[in-house]
Every structure is written in C-alpha cells, then in structure tokens.
Design a protein around this nucleic acid. Structure first.
Length: 924
RNA sequence: GGGCGAUUAGCUCAGUUGGUUAGAGCGCUACGCUCACAUCGUAGAGGUCACAGGUUCGAGUCCUGUAUCGCCCACCA
C-alpha cells in the first residue's frame, strides 16, 4: 500500500498548486448565458508579506470563489497589489540609506526608477505567498495600481472630478510630518497617548496693559486683568489671532469684544465667543491658532480671522516667530515657557496626558499644519452612496457595520489627496509659469481657497503643449503625487481596463477582421459589463472608511452602479490574549510558518472554524491542530477505503447502487443533509457553520459510524457507497481544504475505474437531496442502543470486556438485529447476542426492543450512582412537565404541537422513570 | 463625549422568529497501541447562561437598568 499513514502536505501542496496553475483552472472569461460571480481582492501592499489577517481575508474569498466555481458560475477573483506610496518609498529609501544615499541625491527620476526596480524584483512576493495559501485568483489578470492602464483611470478620474468642481486646491490643516515633509492622511498619523504638560498662560487685557511692555523688569502682568488660557503647545501661541470663550459663559461675558495683548508678540488679539468652546474644560478660554490647529482654523474661518503660520516645513520656527525664528519647535517651547515664567505670565503647569499624532513611518510627532493641498469634495459623492446602502442595494454583513458606514458618510469631510512624495500617480496638474507662478505650498498667511478654475492652472489627462490662456510653453507639472487610496477606490472597475483608452497596447496578436486594439477593448468592455458589479467584498472593519466607502462612491460616480452587492466584514486577528498581532509586540504568528508545519489546508480550515461571523480571531499556534488533525483524519479515511478496495480486489466502476442496506441509506441521507446545510451556509456567508457541518459529518458520521460498521464486511456495494460519500465529501470540503481534497480526488481516480477526469476544482458541486431517503429506519436506534450498552458497561467496570447480551424484540426488529449483528457485536464489544422473549431484567428499552447484559460478580456502585442521577433528572423533568401541562395559561397559549410534544414527553419520561425505578429496586 | 459589540463549561465559542433535560471543539479524568488514523478510539466529569428588575403560561433568547471588558468615531485647547 503506497498511501502514507500520515498526511504530508509539504509533498502534496506544491504539486497540486502547480497542476491548478498549469491547467488554467482559475482563469475566467465572460460567457453569455452563464452566471458571473466576481470578487476583487483587497490589494495588498506591494511591499507586503503575508500575515494572518491576509490569510483569513483571502481564505474567506477563496472559499466563496471555489464554491461558486463549482456551482458552474463564471467565477472571477481579480488579484493585484497596491503601490502603497509612502510605505514603498520608505522601503526603498531605507535600502538607499545603506548605500549612504538620500533620495535627493538621486533626484526624482532616478529615485523613481529605483522604486520600479524594487517593485520588479520584490513586488510579487506576496502574490506567491497567496498562491501557497491556495488562493484561486485569476493570476493572469494580476493588476498593479500603477500599471499604465490603471494610471490612465486615475488621471481620468482626477480630471473628471476637477471638471465637475469636485476637486479643489485649498488651504487646510493637515497632518504634516516635518521629517518626511509631506502631508499625511489621518490613518498615516495614528494617535498615541503621550505624557506632556498643560500650561496655563495669562493673556492681559489691552485696556490695562496698553502702553505697557511686558519685558523683564517692567510692569508685572499680575497687576493687570487677564484671561488665562491652557495649552499643551505653548510655541503655537506665537501664531495666536484671538482667544475664544463660550457665549454662555458668564465668567467671560464682560471680556467679549475686548482686546488682549498676546504676550511675547505684543499683538493685540480679540476675545470672541464661539459655542465650540467648552466652558468646563481647562479655563474655559481657548487661544486661537488657526495655522496650527484644526479647530482653531475652523473657528477663525467663522470669525474671519487670518491665520499666522509660525513654523517652517521642517518644524523650525519661521520669520513670524520673532526672536524664536530658526529655533526647533520643542526648543522654542522651552524658551517660551521660561520667558513667560520670568514674566509671571504662567499661572500653573500641570502634567497632562493627551493624544499626539506620530508619523507611522518615522515616529516623528506630526504637526497640525496649515498647508495648501488638493482635496476632493466628498458630500456630493457621498449622497448616492448613502442612498444605495439605505435602499439595501449594498448589504453589510454583519449588518451592524451599516450604521458605522452611514454615520461616517453622513458626516463626511473633504479628502486631502495630495502627498509630497515621489512614488505614486503624479497629479495631472500643470502650471503656466507665465500666467501664475506655482504657488509656494507653505508660509501662507492668507486663506484664499482657489476659484473654480484658476488662471494658469491646467488640469488635463495629457501634458499640455502650451498654456491655453496665454500660449506660453513654460509649463511645469505639480510635483505632488496622489494618496494611494485615490487609486484603490477605482479598483473594482479599473482592474477591468476601464476607461478602455484606445492607446492601450494589447499583448495579444490581432485576430482576423479586426484590429487587435479594438478587439481587445470590446472584449474588456464586455467583461466589465459582465463581472461588474462584483458580488461581494471581503474586508476588515478598519478598511470601511478608507476603502469600502470610497469604492462605493467611485462606483456610483464613474460606473453609475454599486461596485459590489454584499460587504462581509470579518474580525481582526489577535494573539491569544487579545492583542493585535504586531512585529513590535513580537506576538506574530507567521502563516507561512504554519503552512510549513501543518499545511495550507489546516491553516485555512482552522481559521474559518475560529472566525465566527465577524468576530475577532484569537490565535495561538496550537489552534491549528484542529485543522491538522482533521487533514489527517480525511487522509486516513481515504487510505482505509482504498486499502480495503485493494485488499478485496474490488473494482468500483460506477455508482449504480443495487443493494443498499439500512446503514448505506443512513449515511447517504446524512450526506444529503450535510450537502444541504453546507450549501445554505455558504450562500449566506456563514463559512464557519459550513465548515463545522463538514467536520461533523465526515468525522462523526462517516468515520465514526459508517467506516467502523463496514470494516469487516467490505463488499462491492459498501465500496461504492464509501467512495461515493468520499467523493461528495471532498467536493464539500474543497472550498475550505483545496489541496487535500484535490489529492483525495487523485486517489479516487487512481484506485477506481470511475469516469472521472479533470481536477476537483472544476467539478460540479453536489446536488441537494439527490440521495435523501424518506424510509423510516431503526438504524439510529441501533446506534443509540450501542452507545447505551457501552455506557452501562463503563459504569459496570466492563469497559473493554466482551459481554453477552439478551434482547427481546418484535420479529421485524429481529430481522434488523440479525442482518446487522456482526458489526453490532464488534462496536458494542459483545461476545454474543441471544434473542428471547421476556427478560428477567431490563437495562435498556426503547419502542422496539429491550435489552439485558448478562453479568455476574461485578461492582454495581458506579452503575447505581449513574442510575440514581438519571432518576433524579427524570423526576425533575417529569414534575416540570406535569406542572406545565397543568398550567391553564400554557394550555391556552402554547401552540398545539408544543402541547403534544409536552404530552409525549410526559408519557415517555414516566415510562422510563418507572423502568429505572424498577431496575434500581431490583438491585437494592 | 458619543456610538457599537461582548459577558453561556477551565479555555475558545455555537445557540436561528421566546417552547424537550443549554451544545461543540480544545483541555481534563478513566480505559484502550481493536490490522485507516494515538494527529486515534470509547466513556465520563464540568454551566444558578455577568448582575438586578420587568414583560410572558414559559426568557440564555425580548425590554429597562447596573457592572466589567473590548472596539470604533470625535475638534476638547
């Protein structure tokens, strides 16, 4: 026998993978008259390496894709990677640093070339890792967000939004990393708790402070009236333009409209009222620094105050900072505090824990910074996206995420899309130098957001030859690139080749009668029409805002349709104590390591079992043993079947069953129920329900009962049934454990003469109900009897000893017993079964037979104890049931079948109880 | 500060519209190397379903409140 007794995924998985890829089993094309099923992969970062989150996310997608592929749908899983602007640039910059170079040393062009080199060399790492996981993506279609065709989509979208006045350039407070010198999105600047200080600073009233200079040795501020403001960043006070209080706050009512003298800068600033100010926080008065704080910026806008930027892009103080010019922001903070202390302008300093944003790549404290950036106006885009979800066109699963989505969408803010880095899609924005100088990005003290289409700014898909306004050829392109998400939000349709630009070059040779370009384009158009909207998007909760919501908006804006019909949000993968897995915590479990140890199938199956719909997954290495053990069980069940077939020289050529007995019928019925359950569960995205059902059926029905029963009576008929069940089981299993199921399929082909060909991945899904059998069967009662006999034997201390039993039964039941006696004796560990009328003791009884175990000289202690427990239980049930049936309310209100059930229960329980009491009495 | 979720066996979780004696896996205990599998088999122990009220003939399930934990959002200087 050449089948190993242990399943060895390391040998099998690479071979199967290769066969799938060679056979083109994952490629899908649109076929008129067929049904599509499509998913676009959440594109991993091109710098990424597979982590458990990916493993879970992609396993779920693969299960759905494989399931639908087997249901003969044209199943397309679109793979690809994301250029991940800052992350990738960071990786390459680090590599450069090893050569002692900075990107500026190379210049933009050369540095970008290096980035592409890096991508060519390392960009497919995660793709190959996904293949090892078993992901059945249509790999021929693998896309990259900076592919030429994809980039055209990005440019087109930018221009289109600009033309509709949905993109504008303007000043706003953004997250600014002074080290990277770029704007960051909110997700790129996560908050961290930081220990700092809250400084309470006195701002004197001008009426009293007028003509007084607040310099050392002159008038003491304590002698004047003042307002105290609290701040964590005293250096920003140099840019203060006002102090705000709550209009309801009586303490400050008399100050409103008056002027304060801003210490150090000696600038007069107004006291204004704004309901944003929380009278209960700090002193109830807020300094307004519009250029360095988002709230202040918005308040200043409300009150028509101009911001004053006091820092340079590298976070040193600028010329607006007076004597602190050139000083680093933190050094300036110290100096300013020192000065204020000397002036007695600090009331107190309190330790304070607040949230500080840090750059995710270099950990530098991010500065809220007034800067000229490009924005997308989101509200108009959000409207149809909100409507669609409300109308149920797009469904979230679990549903609760819908609220999260809607809440964000209804309070949506404009999207800062420009980044001051070099890796990404460059803005299709050109400046005519003659019409208008390219504006400096920083140091603006004026908030003048641009008009709709300002002069000298040209937004176009192609670089213009000359300025349409003045004809000048002195034109420069904006140096910024777009936020990575500005390309990912187009993923569900841009991956199909949209917008089908004619200049796209096809790699395919032209076909007869049509130029290859137009042929290619019309095919792509068809495919988009066929596969879009995609069926379902599988992603993690933290991606809802960045990506899911934006894809929905882009879908409606550019396709006029939702990008997907269902969104499944799965949980986060955590370590066993609930912490997120991260390199810095050192609690990462590497999926590739698990694949090496137990196989991709075991990894996949374990993950699905653990990931109950949308709940977080707590992992430790031992949790993968479930999958490993199950693999081995499947393997050995298969091994057993073919071992027997070989031993008996049986030829299985077809599934024409001529002589099914009760046991065969039972297992076929169980199989049918499993098919039904798994199918329904997969249709409703209850993957773990489906996985559990397969596990339960295969292990506990097929292996524990069926195989055990047929072991010593392995006929042709049994072989057929066993192979049939095996074949149908691995079909059910295939979406979850594609490798082992495929290998079992190979073995079936090898050891039988069944007309099977191709690969399991392309086979049809089992039909529901085909083998359901309505025949009432006593076989399950036999199972119960065997269990009960084992149970009693264990209590009697006869666990592994063979015993004689006596059975009293009807002639009909006797037939059942006789025809199955062999395996009954084996499974219940019996020496013999004697049939006789009337037993002098009944240990077990059901509707059809009663049974006694012949025994002498055994300890009855345990048996009587468990008998006693049973009696107590039954008495409780009995009195409960009685009480229920005597309850008028119950009789009046409960449905008739419930009442009937209770009546039956009363009958059965009291009979059983009587018998047990009698039995107990006989022993005592 | 708002919102959401969770709380069921030692651990991780199921429990469908309220209706038999609340289930599974892992772990644990006992026995067994029975010729597919010790990555196995058989049996067993283990739960006042977080707490307090309420609705109901009947609540793990519905309502209200409390506690603890977790997550998300937010402009609190």
């Amino acid at each position: 026998m050449e089948i190993a007794s242990r399943y060895n995924p390391q040998e099998i998985e690479p071979r199967i993978l290769n066969a799938w890829l060679q056979g083109g089993h994952f490629h899908s094309v649109s076929r008129p008259g067929h049904k599509p099923f499509s998913i676009v992969i959440p594109p991993p970062n091109v710098t990424g390496i597979l982590h458990m989150g990916h493993a879970l996310n992609n396993t779920i997608q693969d299960v759905l894709i494989r399931f639908n592929r087997m249901r003969a749908k044209d199943s397309l899983w679109m793979p690809g990677t994301d250029h991940a602007g800052i992350a990738t640039q960071n990786v390459v910059e680090k590599a450069l640093a090893k050569e002692g170079l900075r990107k500026e040393d190379l210049g933009r062009e050369e540095f970008t070339r290096r980035l592409w080199d890096w991508k060519e060399q390392h960009g497919s790492v995660i793709i190959n890792q996904l293949k090892r996981l078993g992901a059945s993506c249509d790999w021929q279609r693998t896309r990259f967000t900076m592919d030429e065709a994809y980039s055209k989509a990005v440019t087109k979208v930018f221009v289109s939004l600009w033309n509709k006045n949905l993109i504008y350039r303007g000043y706003y407070i953004i997250n600014w990393c002074p080290r990277c010198k770029t704007a960051l999105s909110d997700e790129e600047a996560p908050y961290q708790q930081a220990q700092g200080y809250l400084y309470y600073i006195k701002y004197p009233l001008v009426s009293q402070a007028a003509n007084r200079t607040l310099k050392p040795g002159t008038v003491q501020a304590t002698q004047t009236k003042y307002i105290v403001v609290a701040t964590t960043r005293p250096e920003t006070m140099l840019g203060d333009v006002a102090v705000a209080v709550n209009p309801e706050d009586k303490r400050f009512a008399s100050y409103i409209g008056k002027k304060l003298l801003l210490p150090i800068m000696q600038r007069e600033i107004p006291v204004l009222s704004d309901s944003f100010v929380d009278p209960d926080f700090g002193t109830g008065a807020v300094k307004i620094t519009p250029a360095h704080d988002l709230n202040d910026f918005e308040m200043a806008n409300r009150h028509n105050l101009s911001p004053i930027v006091v820092m340079n892009p590298d976070a040193t103080m600028n010329e607006n900072a007076g004597e602190y010019k050139g000083m680093d922001r933190f050094k300036a903070r110290g100096k300013i505090v020192e000065f204020l202390k000397n002036q007695d302008l600090i009331l107190k300093v309190e330790p304070y824990t607040n949230a500080v944003s840090r750059c995710y790549r270099c950990d530098t404290v991010v500065e809220p910074y007034l800067s000229r950036q490009w924005f997308v106006r989101m509200e108009p885009l959000a409207k149809p996206a909100i409507k669609a979800v409300r109308a149920g066109k797009i469904k979230f699963n679990p549903k609760r995420w819908e609220k999260v989505y809607l809440n964000w969408m209804e309070n949506i803010r404009d999207w800062c899309i420009s980044r001051q880095i070099w890796w990404g899609h460059r803005l299709p924005v050109y400046y005519c130098k003659k019409c208008k100088e390219e504006p400096g990005r920083n140091n603006k003290s004026q908030i003048t957001n641009d008009n709709f289409h300002p002069k000298g700014v040209i937004v176009a898909e192609e670089r213009p030859q000359k300025c349409p306004h003045c004809g000048s050829q002195d034109i420069v392109q904006d140096s910024d690139v777009l936020d990575t998400w500005f390309s990912s939000w187009l993923w569900p349709f841009a991956t199909f080749g949209w917008p089908f630009d004619k200049s796209q070059v096809s790699a395919k040779p032209p076909r007869r009668g049509q130029s290859h370009k137009s042929q290619d384009i019309s095919r792509k158009r068809e495919e988009l029409k066929y596969f879009y909207p995609t069926n379902v998007l599988i992603t993690a909760p933290e991606i809802i805002f960045f990506w899911v919501a934006r894809m929905i908006m882009a879908g409606f804006e550019f396709m006029g349709k939702e990008p997907f019909r269902d969104v499944c949000i799965h949980g986060t993968v955590r370590d066993n104590s609930g912490r997120k897995m991260s390199k810095s915590l050192g609690n990462v479990i590497d999926p590739l390591d698990i694949i090496d140890k137990v196989g991709a199938d075991a990894l996949r199956f374990s993950l699905i079992l653990l990931a109950a719909s949308g709940s977080d997954v707590y992992l430790s290495e031992d949790k993968f043993l479930v999958g490993r053990n199950f693999s081995n069980k499947i393997w050995n069940a298969t091994r057993f079947v073919f071992l027997k077939i070989e031993e008996k020289g049986i030829k299985v050529e077809d599934f024409k069953f001529s002589e099914l007995d009760e046991v065969d019928e039972w297992i076929l019925r169980e199989l049918s129920l499993a098919v039904e359950c798994v199918t329904e569960s997969l249709e409703t995205y209850s993957l773990n329900e489906a996985a559990k059902k397969i596990y339960e059926f295969f292990w506990h029905s097929f292996c524990d009962w069926y195989i055990e029963i047929v072991k010593d009576n392995f006929t042709l008929s049994k072989a057929k049934a066993a192979v049939f069940v095996l074949l149908e089981s691995i079909k059910l299993l295939h979406p979850f454990m594609p490798f082992i199921s495929e290998e079992v399929f190979n073995l079936i082909k090898k050891h039988t003469s069944l007309p099977l060909s191709g690969m399991l991945a392309s086979l049809d899904w089992p039909k529901i109900g085909k083998h359901a059998c309505g025949k009432p069967m006593g076989i399950e009662l036999i199972f119960d009897t065997i269990k009960e006999v084992r149970n009693i034997k264990a209590d009697l201390g006869l666990g592994q000893k063979k015993v004689d039993i006596e059975v009293d039964c009807s002639p009909e039941a006797l037939k059942l017993w006789n025809s199955n006696q062999g395996w009954i004796e084996r499974l219940a560990l019996l020496k013999s079964v004697v049939y006789r009328k009337g037993l002098n003791r009944v240990l077990y009884k059901n509707k059809f037979w009663a049974l006694n175990i012949v025994m002498d000289n055994v300890s009855l202690d345990n048996f009587l104890i468990s008998l006693g427990k049973k009696v107590v239980n039954l008495e409780a049930v009995l009195s409960e049931t009685k009480a229920r049936l005597e309850n008028k309310g119950f009789i009046q209100n409960a449905s008739s079948d419930i009442i009937d059930r209770e009546k039956a229960k009363l009958r059965d329980t009291s009979l059983l109880l009587q018998r047990l009491l009698k039995l107990k009495g006989a022993f005592e």
